[in-house]
Amino acid sequence: MNVVYDAAQFVDGSDANYTFINYKPGEARDHPVLAAGNVSAPGAVVPRRFLAVLAREDHRFTRGSGRLDLAERIFSDAAPLASRVIVNRVWAWHFGKPLVATPSDFGTQGEKPTHPELLDDLAARFVRNGWSLKWLHREIMLSEAYRRSSRPRKDALAADAANSLLWRMNPRRLDIESYRDTLLRVSGRLNPELYGPSEDADSETSVRRTVYARASRSRPAKLPQLYDFPDATQTSPGRDLTTSALQSLFVLNSSFMKLAAEGVARQPAGADGDAARVRELFRRILARDPTAKELDSALSYLARGSLESYARILLSCNEVIFWP
């Protein structure tokens, strides 16, 4: 089934007091200029064609609405721009920081690249390799820069605190999808089933992966928003990360975290005894064993507090959301 089809847009003039817009499938037309958007006074007709600023010559669109012509021009005339745009985005997904800080604006109002030669080189070789994203991922992930540790070094911090020279991997944090999925997974509550309709991620009964969270324009889900999910009424090139007091309130006080802790505490331990249980909690939540000191502190906590409270403590830790 085609979800996208070619259609031409017309104003139905049958009612003098009401503007109906008609889409006629299978038709194509060149639109007139509508000064100030006034559909009652159409101006000169402009033939549909590729953007003049990117076009090598005047390419009129001839096939249907011109969707196919447009796609072809993006990969030919506009290839220098289009390849840099996607390379910049893939780079940002791997490094947590783009080379051009405005991924949706490479124009005069956008930022200049921090590493122009790197962007040019990657984009050129990306095109030479047949626009293969698989090649691009491999090229980036096999680079020395990508494989560096994120550990801070005193001398390097003093010289380049913003890491603009990529002397280390940028420390990252889990996005809300990975974070919420992690919390559901470790508590044994996650429903990993694929496909189906979206659901309200704020509901206590919602335990599917966060990718199924409903993104409603009029009623945005609160939890994803709390962790920088962008405004769904606008296009967004990425997320602006914030660290807010409301996030702390969620972690320390929310019923979601309470349910997660209950879930973790309910999971069976491999052996009897508090020490075995603590070890099980550490493995489940932090994927490692406790140090001797951590085990001691946990045992003295458990002398007075519950296993569930201790699970909540571990779930609240920086180590859960931080991605070194």
Binding site: L157, T243, L314, C317, N318
Partner: peptide, 28 residues
Amino acid sequence: AIQQLNHAFGEQFGPDDYLEGRINLDQA
């Protein structure tokens, strides 16, 4: 107990704005 674990993690990793910001916010 959370702060104790966070401080230990921070010491092991090294200085980081986000880690420290999160510790301060929890406190606040």
